[in-house]
């Protein structure tokens, strides 16, 4: 059966099937004060601002993308008209971590 292109559940740690040596990972947590924000939308935009992917944050407020090396923008959307952009650089074999406060 073909797997869909939908985003998988955003787990706290990197899935065991993923070999970090081959991936350029961008991940982060969405917080409001000291609390994680589940159910926010994280959109990955490439260096030209083009949409590349979107995930919904987990119960721990986590989002994660498997990108290509380079500069990216993560746009976080949440109820109340929240839209916050953060820039990040991804490299193969590394996890680029973000914390987004809304």
């Amino acid at each position: 059966m073909t797997d869909g292109c939908g985003a998988p559940a955003q787990t706290a740690s990197l899935p065991a099937t993923v070999d970090l040596a081959n991936e350029a990972v961008i991940q982060g947590t969405v917080v409001r004060g000291d609390d994680a924000v589940p159910g926010a939308y994280a959109r990955l935009l490439d260096a030209t601002g083009e949409f590349t992917g979107e995930v919904v944050t987990s119960d721990e407020g986590i989002f994660r993308f498997f990108a290509a090396p380079g500069d990216w923008t993560v746009r976080v959307l949440a109820p109340g008209g929240v839209s916050i952009d953060s820039t990040v650089t991804a490299q193969v074999g590394e996890i680029a971590n973000l914390q987004v406060a809304i």
Partner: peptide
């Protein structure tokens, strides 16, 4: 698909591992 999938840089969307 996304631009990087179109050019051949990625084989799947960026929220999925590139397997």
């Amino acid at each position: 698909r996304s631009p990087d999938e179109f050019t051949g840089k990625l084989l799947a969307p960026a929220h999925l591992p590139q397997e």
